[in-house]
Write a protein that binds this DNA or RNA. Structure first.
Lengths: 205, 205
DNA sequence: ATCGATTTGCACAGCGCTGTGCAACGGCGT
DNA sequence: ACGCCGTTGCACAGCGCTGTGCAAATCGAT
């Protein structure tokens, strides 16, 4: 058991991975899910989870780190080498959509003051990038909103969450949802609906 | 103490009212705030709260009932006798804005599976009205969105939350925020930005 | 079959929260 | 000054969760 923290057997690794995956799903369902709920959902006993993570916070922290990394990558990949802010936002949304569940967890956890304040800090860089992009769009007149860029970023974020929830409730198929989300985010930013749909349609080749 | 639940002394009533008000604020800050936190924030001992409400759920339930009533009233008042869906939505948003904090609590609690599932039920009627209004706007071509009406309702809701949070973070003054929220909701629904700003400006006389 | 790594089962102490009982204390009107 | 009603302080049992210790069982590979 001592080497579980350092050494790497395939068995232990697989379990650790599965615990993390299940924990993501479980925390998505209930942000205050207990270690026992997570363990049982992973087909494992509570004591085993403590073999892989010293405490609850460490588990969540690992999850958050992975999510932030994925989000950051998606966000960056979406907007690199793109001049048009609208297109950058659209690409970014489509990219983030691929890791929607992890994004959702981040937002859900960031809202709870209890869970962690460190999340906001770890999330800050990618949020700032988002704000910069929106501000550029606002300045160039591509976007149009009475809201300042940081506030628009909140709208951007919550819009994604809203569409996510719609998919969750079966109101939308997962396939069309990504494009819908992109179009909605753009129109919320003040891009004419026709222009937004056309742009997003073009991105899917 | 027995008559605290039935009889009405001014003292007890004032306390009860203050407990409810403080509980609203406290639960807004942390949806899982303990009875002790709420009591102390209200300048009262925990035992006293149990004198007014038999248990935690009863307290929250009262809060929810009040909030649903206020929301329902605001929502109805906003759209009665208005033919244009866009104007109805705008008026509704402005009306809801007056009870923003209670609305926020409702949404926050509705998201937690733990707290109550009854909230969704009590919230369902007003949500359905919202969906109907959005659907009418979609059908009449006033709104334009790739999203079906129920999904658009989610976007509507989360957009309000986003602007609320922006105000909370000092990115917006409370005065301008209402109109900003209305404009943003409309543009998210596909109403051209210029038309949305003009309409909302007109509503403030 | 055996060894080492891993998981399990159980027991435990500790913490914070809920809800209740009860006696004492407070203000306020008469 | 008295009585009423609300409030307080304290004590208590119960619950669920966390994190840890330890011995037994189990799995995988040699």
């Amino acid at each position: 058991m001592a080497s579980m923290t350092t050494g790497n057997t395939s068995r232990a690794d697989a379990n650790r991975r599965r615990i993390l995956d299940v924990a993501l799903a479980e925390l998505l369902r209930d942000p205050d899910a207990s270690m026992d709920q997570i363990a049982r959902a992973a087909g494992v006993v509570r004591r085993t989870v403590y073999g892989h993570f010293p405490n609850r916070e460490a588990l969540i922290s690992t999850l958050v780190d992975e999510a932030v990394a994925a989000l950051s990558a998606a966000h960056t990949a979406g907007r690199e080498g793109v001049r048009d802010p609208a297109e950058a936002v659209a690409r970014s949304v489509l990219a983030v959509w691929e890791i929607a569940d992890r994004y959702r967890l981040l937002v859900a956890l960031a809202q709870r003051t209890v869970t962690m304040q460190g999340i906001r800090e770890r999330l800050a860089p990618v949020r700032e990038e988002s704000v910069r992009l929106l501000r550029r769009g606002l300045d160039e007149g591509v976007f149009s909103s009475p809201l300042p860029a940081p506030a628009l970023a909140y709208v951007h974020e919550q819009t994604l969450i809203a569409v996510l929830e719609a998919v969750n409730d079966g109101l939308l198929t997962a396939r069309e949802a990504g494009r819908c989300a992109a179009v909605t985010v753009l129109t919320a930013a003040g891009v004419p609906a026709s222009m937004a749909t056309e742009l997003v349609a073009k991105l899917n080749d």
